[in-house]
Design a protein around this nucleic acid. Sequence first.
DNA 1: AGGTGTGGCTAACACTGTTAGCCACGACGT
DNA 2: ACGTCGTGGCTAACAGTGTTAGCCACACCT
Lengths: 188, 188
Amino acid sequence: MTRREEIVDVAERLLERAGPQAVTMRRLADELGIQAPSLYKHVAGKHEIEAALQQRALQRLGATLEAAPDLPSLAVAYRAWALRHPRLYEIATRLPLARERLAPGVEAAAAVPLLRMTGGDLTEARVLWGLAHGLVDLELAGRFPPGADVDAVWARAFAERAGDARAAPSDAVEPPDPGPAESGAAGS
Amino acid sequence: MTRREEIVDVAERLLERAGPQAVTMRRLADELGIQAPSLYKHVAGKHEIEAALQQRALQRLGATLEAAPDLPSLAVAYRAWALRHPRLYEIATRLPLARERLAPGVEAAAAVPLLRMTGGDLTEARVLWGLAHGLVDLELAGRFPPGADVDAVWARAFAERAGDARAAPSDAVEPPDPGPAESGAAGS
DNA sequence: AGGTGTGGCTAACACTGTTAGCCACGACGT
DNA sequence: ACGTCGTGGCTAACAGTGTTAGCCACACCT
């Protein structure tokens, strides 16, 4: 394992354990037993570490979603992952998505499971993605008051949507090739 | 106008003009022709300024939404406001909602328009809110690839939902009294 | 042996939010 | 009229942030 990966590993552990404000260059270096400026021998800057975490989060989330057989279970898998890795989810979703830093294909790969559900319908996939993301984001931000029945909200949201998704035009069952801009970008 | 409001005003202008990283205590003080530590004579800390901006954003958004006659136009009004005041929207939505700092009633007031659409159905209101927020958040984060037809996504999302909303149980046409925890908190 | 890249180090810079302590001024009560 | 006191400014300073410059030891390769 290269030292760079090691840094990202520590950053991830630190992030989930102590929150985003704790992942600082000096703290990171401490954890590795070195001095903060030495980090720059392996990494261009903090933004690069964040980009790496973002990429990692996208891959993990995408992999988790792969297993879901239908839309409702995909929804609960999405929410469950986000609640289990809240900081990673935030970093994956709040950061403006450094596409140029991202390894090619990971954005597309994260989109595949959802796209499969909608039969390749990009618009519908984006609706569902927005719905899931919005609900997760509000929940993570503590926006639903304590005691709110969030389970019921998710049930309602995706129960009704499920019918629509199946009724969608089956123009492309196979996910489109992860081409440049438009194709794979519905889920990331 | 008290000096405190003046500070928040400058903060808001600075935020929308130059972005969140530009609204710093020293910069704020410069804009007011004073020294940074003097700000603390009027404000407990930066968090208080942010909380004030958050409250302001909630009020403005709520007021804008008031005018919408039906669900589709409420959706476009929501999106339009967010796109016109992206930084304010972020601060209103990303910050963990300092409920104790918030003037009583503003959270509830922001929820009223949506709740009216759903005939008082809290769960449905939250679904719609999550949907709208998620789509806005993804768009603001630059998550939809350039060239994506976001209009189409919104049209699809709320065209189908509109029927559901009207078919919702009409158990409470009048928005519930803005009681303590549960009632008014669906939209904020 | 000699050169070279790798990966540490210290010192320092320009920022950030924030605190302590001082001081001028204006209002207010006696 | 005079003392008192709150208001609102100031400077100096602190701890912490990301980041750069420059130095140096060690391993490796010719």
